[in-house]
Each structure stands twice: as structure tokens, then as C-alpha cells.
Computed example of a mutant assay.
Amino acid sequence: MALTFELDPAVGPALRDSVVDLWVDVSNAGGSVGFVPPVSRETVRPELVRHLVAMSEGRTRLLIGRDEGGEVVATVFIASNTHRLMAHWVWLHTVMVHPRHQGRGYGRDLLAAAADAARGLEGIEAIRLTCRGGQGLERFYASCGYKEVGRVPDAIRVAPGEDRDDVTMLLPLGVV
């Protein structure tokens, strides 16, 4: 069963709650999406609000993936690079697939849909994202065509004395 993707869905209370719930579930399952477990809806909601503000300002777009029942089970935020000398690439933030759907290829499908969305944006030649080292995410992104282009050792502190590398990955889109 494949996911159905939608770029720039209408954002109302139900979608906001679905994204918050997804973010909490992914975080509490150990996903590297800006938090360490345990997190609550109240912890995650302000971060979503920041993304929603960027969306309202036209700096960020939301791509969601729905399962066969219509539930939001995958998301990624596609953020424009506002620096005038770097406007030819976008950032991916908060790449999430619900834990109960992981291992089915939905992460690859989400990244492919994000690349398709980025190709549809005028002048975009590449996608960048960062990931938390030490969890094998670099290998996953590499298997999806991304290349590691930078690493800051011990930049992410998940707990006292427990640091992870901040890894930057790049996907050239082949746009001429």
C-alpha cells in the first residue's frame, strides 16, 4: 500500500493535531526530529507553530503523506533558503514517517516526493538536510541519493556527556 502525498495541504486544527501527534510518536520512538524522548504534545506544539509561521510567510512548504485510511503518517517541511546567494537550493526539515509504518519504503517515497516538489520550484537545483549522527541516518539518506557534504563533530547534545555529530547531506536535482 502506497502513501498519497499532498504538497501545501489546507492547514486546520485536524491537520495541526495530526502533525503534532506524528511528531510526538516519532520522537518518543527515538526518531531524530529535534527532540529526545520523552516529549509531549505541549513540548512539540511550539516547534510546529514556528513552521506554520514560516509557511504563512511563504518561506516553508509542507508535504504530507497519508496512508490508505487517510491518516497523516509522513511529513517533511521544505524550506526556502532566504540568503540571496543560496536561493538555488532548499532545506528539508523534520522528515518523519510514523514508527508503525517504517520499514515499508515510505521514507524513500517521502524523500522522492520531496525531490519532485523541489524540482517543481523555480530555480531549485539541490536539496540539503541535516541529520543526527550515530543512528545510521547518513546511510539511509545516502541510499536515497544524498551525499554527505559536511559534519560537525559532537554538535548535538542529546544528554549530558552524550553528543552526536551534525551531518549535512546534499541531493543535486539534476536541474539545468
Rank of each mutant, 00 (worst) to 15 (best):
A2C: 01
A2W: 01
E6I: 06
P9W: 13
V11H: 08
G12R: 11
G12Y: 00
G12W: 00
P13K: 13
P13I: 07
P13Q: 13
A14F: 01
L15S: 01
S18H: 02
S18F: 01
D21L: 09
D21Y: 09
L22W: 14
W23Q: 01
W23L: 05
S27Q: 11
S27I: 06
S27P: 03
S27Y: 07
N28M: 09
A29S: 15
A29K: 14
G31Y: 14
V33T: 13
F35P: 02
P37Q: 14
P37R: 13
P38M: 10
V39Q: 12
V39E: 12
R45I: 02
L48A: 08
L48T: 07
V49P: 00
R50G: 06
H51G: 02
M55C: 09
S56W: 03
E57H: 04
G58L: 10
G69P: 00
G70T: 02
G70F: 12
E71P: 00
E71F: 02
V73L: 10
A74P: 05
V76I: 11
F77I: 08
A87G: 06
H88E: 00
V90P: 07
W91L: 00
T94W: 10
T94C: 06
V95M: 10
V95C: 06
V97G: 05
R100T: 14
R104F: 05
G105A: 01
Y106C: 04
Y106H: 15
R108G: 09
A114N: 06
A114D: 07
A118T: 04
R119V: 04
R119N: 02
G120D: 09
G120Q: 10
E125D: 04
A126T: 08
I127C: 03
I127H: 05
R128A: 08
G133K: 10
G134A: 07
G136A: 05
G136T: 13
L137M: 11
F140H: 01
F140T: 12
Y141C: 04
C144L: 05
G145M: 11
G145T: 04
Y146E: 05
R151K: 15
I156M: 07
R157E: 05
V158H: 05
V158Q: 10
P160I: 02
T168K: 09
M169D: 04
V176N: 02
